[in-house]
């Protein structure tokens, strides 16, 4: 037994044991300190119960879908929620927009801007403008239509629009016919 425990074996063994203990400790801690993903953001756009689904790999031109959820509201309507980081536009950097769509039809049920991107001027989006979009089918969103989310800050509204275009493309690819 002593013959096997040469200095080099001792070295490697010590390292391996330390590594195993560390990894085990971290694995336990990882489970203990688990933070469940926060879906309250979606409920702010449209009140419902949501569960996370896998984000499909879709080629998107104007942004990224960071999180996708599906759910159903009190009337049993099937919903799709998208947590979108839009590509910026000009001086406005990426906007994080939450959009909730009806799963079967693609009608926008609710949306709001979670995080406005940094831009040259302070920008307060007009919530009522976004509310007007509710009831429109996401397929009918015309990219870069300035009437849509206009506040006078053109770059920022285009950046927000990019989020809707992203939702349009994603919905069409994943849920469309």
């Amino acid at each position: 037994m002593k013959k096997i425990l040469t200095p080099s074996v001792k070295c490697v063994l010590t390292l391996v044991i330390i590594a195993v203990v560390c990894v085990a400790a971290l694995a336990i801690l990882n489970d203990l300190l688990y933070v469940p993903p926060d879906f309250s953001a979606f409920s702010n756009a449209y009140e419902a119960e949501y569960d996370q689904v896998e984000v499909a790999d879709v080629a998107l031109t104007s942004g990224k879908v960071l999180l996708a959820v599906e759910g159903s509201d009190s009337q049993g309507k099937q919903l799709v929620g998208l947590y979108i980081e839009s590509a910026g536009y000009g001086k406005a950097k990426a906007f994080t927009v939450i959009i909730v769509l009806e799963k079967d039809t693609g009608i926008i049920l609710g949306s709001y801007i979670k995080e406005q991107g940094s831009s040259a001027a302070p920008y307060d989006y007009d919530e009522s403008k976004l509310a007007v979009l509710n009831g429109t089918n996401v397929a009918d969103i015309v990219p870069k239509d300035p009437e849509m989310v206009v506040t006078g800050a053109t770059h920022s509204s285009y950046a927000v629009m990019n989020a809707f275009v992203t939702a349009q493309e994603y919905y069409q690819a994943v849920y469309g016919e």
Partner: peptide, 8 residues
């Protein structure tokens, strides 16, 4: 799901 071992 072992991304917490990233640093090590």
């Amino acid at each position: 799901g072992i991304e917490y071992l990233e640093i090590i």
